[in-house]
Design a protein around this nucleic acid. Structure first.
Length: 260
DNA sequence: CGCATAATAT
DNA sequence: GATATTATGC
């Protein structure tokens, strides 16, 4: 017996001090323990959290109250997380983050391809959840563009931008931006900025940032060509991202291997 | 020489 | 800690 949408803890009095921006998250998990743990973590991270124990209640709750993000378990009776995701996308256009103890890469890949924003392997750690707000704001403004900081670039070049996941392979000239995107990532804590360096001669190339969508594309490329033939050059070709270099891919591939 | 991978460096 | 750069070997 699950109540639909248990109390909403609103603490409007003081927010935005420590909180990112009052992001409302719906957590759905049939396992009460897991539900409690995850929701507690999220609340600690200053998110506004509502919990439900099955996908149907989730949909009902979503209809009653506005949310920014759904975090759901994958394995659930009657309707699993992926089916829920489908519904959520259709009806609410909200990003869905999947949680599961299943760390099988093919399962992860499949989820990602189904439109899941992010996949977290249980047990969930606070670190996994810390930055989930990004998905919410990304969805709010349509597409998310991840960029790099430029230190000192005279002409064009060197900025690697990336469109969102499911956009196709065509390379550069896709214009679709509309709002003014701030260059800096709106990270919770940012310290001082602006540092001048004596810099003459050749501008340094900006460091590539492996955004989630870029990483997903990376994974999909590997999946597409098979792990055995997944070498930097091939991956690079399949990914087909402007400005991305073989060295970038090699470096990233190395970290991927290191955490196995 | 081009490339992949391992080992460092930033 | 993430990404770049260099070193080594094929």
């Amino acid at each position: 017996m699950a109540m639909v949408g248990e109390r909403v803890r609103v603490d409007q009095s003081f927010k935005s001090k420590t909180s990112i921006v009052d992001i409302h998250i719906l957590v759905v998990d049939d396992d009460a323990t897991s539900l409690a743990i995850v929701s507690a973590m999220l609340r600690t991270l200053k998110y506004e959290v509502v919990t439900v124990r099955n996908p149907m209640d989730a949909l009902a709750t979503l209809r009653m109250q506005k949310f920014d993000l759904v975090v759901t378990d994958l394995h659930m009776p009657v309707m699993n997380g992926l089916e829920l995701q489908k519904e959520v996308e259709e009806e609410f256009k909200l990003p869905v983050i999947m949680m599961s103890a299943d760390d099988d890469e093919s399962v992860i890949l499949r989820s990602l391809e189904c439109g899941v924003a992010f996949y977290i392997v249980k047990p969930v750690s606070p670190k996994d959840l810390k930055n989930v707000w990004q998905y919410a704001v990304a969805a709010k403004r349509g597409k998310f563009i991840a960029i790099e900081e430029i230190k000192n670039i005279p002409a064009e070049s060197s900025v690697v931008s990336f469109e969102d996941q499911k956009s196709a392979a065509s390379s550069v000239c896709q214009e679709k931006r509309s709002k003014k995107d701030s260059k800096r990532k709106g990270a919770p804590k940012m310290g001082k900025e602006d540092e001048n360096e004596m810099n003459q001669g050749v501008p340094k190339r900006a460091k590539l940032v492996w955004t989630n969508s870029l990483h997903c594309r990376f994974l999909e490329a590997i999946n597409h060509i098979g792990l055995d033939k997944a070498v930097p050059k091939t991956i690079l070709e399949i990914m087909n991202v402007w400005g991305l270099t073989r060295g970038n891919v090699a470096s990233h591939l190395q970290v991927l291997y290191s955490l196995n």
